[in-house]
């Protein structure tokens, strides 16, 4: 791709050379702004041993505008909706050009370890999470088994 900003090249290089533990992000062969992402469900979370696929896209204005990220694998989480959209402040109004793809992926991984039902994207999930956490966690584990363990992705 002609005219890919230096910033994106640098970030991609570093992602490949020093990958974040538990996360793989590989640029698409045909579009260097599109990344295939896989996040490993953090241990001690209901997503443990699940492999979650995401897509990440760097818009024209990146890094002035935030990357667009979405879960492709179904996941039961109060801050992630049916379409896989993520409620994360740094992806919206708290975005700063000083942040990077790396920081975004780390934040998403952290969100899996610590769901935040007080700032929900999916109200039904958040309500259950608040009034019956045990049952919500069981459902999340169930969905992880059903949707995030079928394939055997390679991940470091």
């Amino acid at each position: 791709m002609a005219g890919l900003p230096r910033r994106i090249l640098k970030e991609t290089q570093r992602l490949m050379q020093e990958p974040v533990p538990g996360i793989s992000a590989i640029p698409d062969d045909n579009n260097a702004r599109y990344f295939h992402v896989v996040i490993k469900g953090p241990s001690e979370s209901p997503y443990h041993s699940g492999l979650f696929e995401l897509e990440l896209f760097l818009p024209e204005e990146y890094p002035m505008s935030a990357p667009k990220v979405r879960f492709m694998t179904k996941i039961y989480h109060p801050n992630i909706d049916k379409l896989g959209r993520i409620c994360l402040d740094i992806l919206k109004d708290k975005w700063s050009p000083a942040l990077q793809i790396r920081t975004v992926l780390l934040s998403i991984q952290a969100l899996l370890s610590a769901p935040n039902p007080d700032d929900p994207l999916d109200n039904n999930v958040a309500d259950l999470w608040k009034c019956n956490e045990q049952q919500a966690i069981e459902t999340a584990k169930d969905w992880t088994r059903k949707y995030a363990m079928a394939k055997n992705n390679n991940i470091q």
Binding site: E61, P97, A98, L99
Partner: peptide, 26 residues
């Protein structure tokens, strides 16, 4: 150039008096 791009994007989103520095957590 980066400042200019930052301001353009913020203004197009309707932000003016609330535009912040681009530094991390600044």
């Amino acid at each position: 150039e980066c400042w200019d791009m930052h301001f353009n994007i913020q203004i197009n989103q309707g932000l003016t008096t609330g535009i912040e520095c681009m530094g991390k957590d600044c």
